[in-house]
Design a protein around this nucleic acid. Sequence first.
DNA 1: GTGAAAGCGCTAACAT
DNA 2: ATGTTAGCGCTTTCAC
Lengths: 337, 337
Amino acid sequence: MSIRIADVAQKAGVSQATVSRVLNGSDTVTARTRSKVMKVIHELDYQPNAAAKNLRSQKTMTIGVIVPDVNNAYYAEVIKGIANVAYARKYKIIICDTENNKDKEFEFVNLLMNRTIDGLVMVTPNLLEDEIKQVAAKGYSLAVIGKDIQHERIPCAFTNNVKFSIEVIRHLVERGHRDIVFLSGYADAVDSMERLEGYMKGLKEHELPFRPEYVEDGNFSEEGGYDAIKRLMDSGLPFTAVYAANDEMALGVYKACKERGVRIPEDLAVVGVDNNRIGSYILPGLSTVDQPKYEMGAVIVEKLIDLMNTEDGPGQRIFEIPSQLIIRGSSDYRRGE
Amino acid sequence: MSIRIADVAQKAGVSQATVSRVLNGSDTVTARTRSKVMKVIHELDYQPNAAAKNLRSQKTMTIGVIVPDVNNAYYAEVIKGIANVAYARKYKIIICDTENNKDKEFEFVNLLMNRTIDGLVMVTPNLLEDEIKQVAAKGYSLAVIGKDIQHERIPCAFTNNVKFSIEVIRHLVERGHRDIVFLSGYADAVDSMERLEGYMKGLKEHELPFRPEYVEDGNFSEEGGYDAIKRLMDSGLPFTAVYAANDEMALGVYKACKERGVRIPEDLAVVGVDNNRIGSYILPGLSTVDQPKYEMGAVIVEKLIDLMNTEDGPGQRIFEIPSQLIIRGSSDYRRGE
DNA sequence: GTGAAAGCGCTAACAT
DNA sequence: ATGTTAGCGCTTTCAC
């Protein structure tokens, strides 16, 4: 095949062990031996075989990252945070794009079991909490972003959906709105459920009634948001503001409003979540909630790596990252003025 | 450590070889033996060790993908194409985000040499053509997107920058423009150079003079485009259209125009490249060139995988993917009307 | 400070 | 159809 450590050892007139020591920076090698070996390594253009090293050392220095969609700015930013920290700590990352397919997600988790990767970060996983716990229970190292999996060995980073949703409602009420509709994401998405919960609590805080008919499913997509808001408009229900569980759906709302001549924010205030870049370019600017995506990625992988390399317990396990309401033109208008 | 193939073999009362055969779907195993082995595999929750398998079989079923920035919609889309085809062919992918850092890029190429990955796709690499050729010359499998590396063992997919840039100029000239400025990207980016070449040829085609002072460096970024167009405006040179080598810079132009009260397209026509999603949301819509990013990723990885698994030569090596000029409001206006 | 040798867990050639 | 056996290329005791 190609050139092996034995070839280097032979040519340098030392043992394999010594070459290995040089390669791995052992300090028991004399400078003279080291330079002799290095010289041969360069002469032969020797590259240590990763598989052999992995097998022998029982680690791969690789972390897997499971995301629902690499093409989504939110996840891309999270990946960036993970990648940078991982790189700094000498880890490689394998990206697994599930496209919201649970079967794919299962397959990727398997990379952890078969030791292709040393650790795994799951970003807003589709797997159930119990399924994830089972993996951790087997002794594998994993961390979760966007969800709190209640297991002592799983570090989790997330924002408080309920809290910022209450803030969104407070903001809208302050601007004079009382009839606020909610566009939800996938039925089983925790994010969507928690934002709905915040919406309900926010209404309650201001003694406004919760009306189930004011909630429509928009599937977290622009198209879904477009359809959902049209259904609500067609229903004849009166409303003056919409809280969309993400910016994509809010963009769908813009589209529907444009078609129907509904003015934002005069006729309808709009608030989304995610701080998608597009929201700051469209007119009027889209009010939204910014989540520190990069930081969540960075924090959680730092923690995961620490965990993989120490005996002791997890220390801080929960990282609740503060998010921020960004008020732009789409909602910055006092109703009735 | 954990459970090994020997444990399965012993408990099932067969040899390791038989277990291996079952695992790898050999058809020489009786149904009875197979089910007996499978039963034990499930009972013991056995997972074959990837490193051992990789070492023995001399492959990892993993492809590396080097991109300048995962957070860029263009590359994210390319990755998607690569990921889907790779997944379908049972390959995993390792994403390497160089952040335009050549040292990082070198490190990632090393994954190929040390057999961490079986093949490598480089998307608009920063490495020089010769450096890339050297890797291929050593017998490693790699493919390149966005650049033609002239080496018979390196498949390449790219769009014809010169060609579509000539089209852009033709479009602008047809709309009555004669004084067209060009915003270039990084000085050493091939894309930028080729688009500049197309700009020059386009001018020539219409017997318009090429004036070096009409070219400004915008560094492929929004900020850079903003600064570049302001420098041009301040220079006092008369111009009525701008061709930006990518959409990011075009967005910078929008920003500058807004600040200075320059109307798009009446006072200044704008055309970019990449078909960034934002361009279809801003007003007026940004004219741009759409490149089939997903297809480039899909086509090239398909080819790469074929190449890694066959003895014979590369067959078709060059994949020139047609791109398309999308005319939107930012340039769809006849000068002088 | 360096070398000899065992073995990580698997696959595949060969034998039966 | 199944078993035996020899490595894949490295790291790491244990000697010296």
